[in-house]
Nucleic acid binder design. Structure first.
Lengths: 333, 333
DNA sequence: GTGAAAGCGCTAACAC
DNA sequence: GTGTTAGCGCTTTCAC
């Protein structure tokens, strides 16, 4: 079923069908109705490829996301997809591993799709990637991180302050020896670590590398292993700040295996507030990112960027919310 | 950067560039090298839209998935995506809500993309959807469910037997009053319920609607609420079989809130073995679907279907594995 | 109001 | 071996 078939059936030219389908002016109501009926009856849908060839745009936004995306990113991309759809854009996902070859492969795919814009929910390592993004002058929004030196618009939470608040919460409960479970690669890890240090410093507590564990990634598995390592070498901990909820979940698992109770023996705080946090037992105290607002804003920025409506378009740093559940308590006397 | 630009730079025709890019025969090595160098230097990537117009195929497989996809489905689609890529196919996701309008919108999108094949990780309700799939004679694979009456290829686990094994495990531990937390819409819920009943029957236990709760969906939230309802009206339960892990996680949350311990006061079994199960405290006893094999097989079937290599191509019912962790134990004496 | 014609970037059949 | 040509399905001038 092509536009020509519809035209033939309606006894008009393809141009007229195109006008009707794209809601243009200047079509006799009678003919419009006839065509609309035919479209409905045949189930005709225009071919996107042909359409984007002539329009030189695809109405598609690419979202680059780690192939091991976690629940936080999963929720985020659903939200972005939803809002983008509201603006009339389709969404295309590009899963990339933390490897230069995977990033370059992703870049090739990106180019082949002739996207209208690109949203990065993933920090890539290869400079060539960002160079292409800049050189292509494609609309780009970084979501959940920033590269201030690169002049891309960015949507993210105040990572440092969030981590500071999480750590301060533990300090206020009376904890003095607070372990840190951190990750690698992504800038938010470094920022959350800065916040952790700031809270310690403000309370007059010394930063101790001996109670810091830097995991290679951010999964529950890494959290479990990282906590094992921490437990074996860092004595006297009464609390742990894990830089993501999944690290926290893994850490709690290790404590469970060691026969330690949370928060009885150790308090644990996470970061992100993924859906599952509220359903764990005990519920996880964590730092909530305003994921809905962030996703909505990301889609709005992208839409404005594509439309060239640059008034009021700017990066936004969102506030966080400390969600106190049951995984934190005063240390045992 | 189009093929003509490259052709001009290389001093050859577009056809020659096309031959080189698509690795066809009959190009003088010297010219081939020149073009390859130019491609690399300019970062030229062919335009997919133009390519698929003339080839009349997109090298893209659509995956239809619920917009609220859970961790099991999330893992599954990553696996399928990975294998499909190995076969040279791109993947395009279509998120659909459990609403007729959403399904029809999805169908329109599907048509506009001119896909090479469609994988359903989601049972839709609208008959028109399946009718289109059949009428279009597009390769289709149903993954994680079946519609025997529809003649599509299907990849799924033996739901009934898995549920039977889960329930039998509880019975063997000595449980006699085993609640059921079920869901709606999807056929696996009904199948798992059948397995639950079969196990009861085999043990000479009566099926009691009074200890069955049917949630509207399958999230942890529904599990929490369903368990609340069950707890208030079904007295004397010593165990619960939840038809998905997420329902089980929510159920455990309710028990925690009620001051009941798992497995001390109640045993809980889930189904699917999503990643997080092993990291919960206590670890969740559950029925593991061979997700990697299922995803791989789905991609293989799709690839074979597209290539028209129909030898040995058939639906497969996979076996399961009962994973006993810490959420199940003998009932209190 | 409507149709004819051109062209988007690419590939394949055919000519040379 | 290589170039010329036609055409995929669509939209948009530009005539009429």
């Amino acid at each position: 079923m092509s536009i020509k078939d519809i035209a033939k059936l309606a006894g008009v030219s393809a141009s007229t069908v195109s006008r009707v389908v794209n809601q243009r002016q200047y079509v006799k109501p009678e003919i419009r109705e006839r065509i609309l009926a035919l479209v409905k009856q045949t189930g005709y849908v225009p071919n996107n490829a042909a359409r984007s060839m002539v329009l030189k745009r695809t109405f598609t936004v690419g979202i680059v996301i780690p192939d091991t995306f976690n629940m936080f990113q999963r929720e985020l991309f659903s939200i972005i997809e939803h809002h983008l759809e509201g603006f009339g854009y389709r969404t295309s996902f590009f899963f990339v591993k933390w490897e230069p070859e995977s990033e370059m492969k992703c870049l090739r795919k990106l180019k082949g799709e002739k996207l209208d814009g690109i949203i990065m929910i993933h920090e890539v390592s290869h400079p060539e990637f960002y160079e292409y993004l800049t050189a292509s002058s494609l609309p780009v929004v970084l979501c959940t991180f920033d590269r201030p030196e690169l002049e891309f618009l960015s949507i993210h939470v105040n990572e440092e302050e969030g981590a500071r608040a999480a750590t301060q919460h533990l300090i206020e409960l009376g904890h003095r020896r607070i372990g840190l479970l951190s990750g690698s690669y992504f800038s938010f890890a470094a920022q959350r670590t800065v916040g952790y240090k700031a809270a310690l410093e403000a309370a007059g507590l010394a930063f101790d590398e001996g109670i810091v564990e830097r995991a290679p990634s951010y999964s529950a598995e890494e959290g479990r292993d990282g906590m094992r390592s921490l437990l074996s070498r860092a004595k006297g901990l009464t609390a742990v700040f894990a830089e993501t909820d999944e690290l926290a979940i893994g850490a709690i698992r290790t404590l469970f295996e060691a026969g330690l109770s949370v928060p009885g023996d150790l308090s644990v705080v996470g970061f992100d507030d993924i859906d599952i946090c509220a359903f764990l037992s005990p519920g996880l105290t964590t730092v909530r990112q305003p994921i809905h607002e962030m996703g909505k804003k990301t889609a709005e920025l992208m839409s404005a960027l594509i439309a060239g409506e640059l008034a009021g378009v700017d990066s936004t740093t969102f506030g966080f919310e400390l969600i106190v559940r049951e995984s934190t308590a005063r240390p045992r006397a």
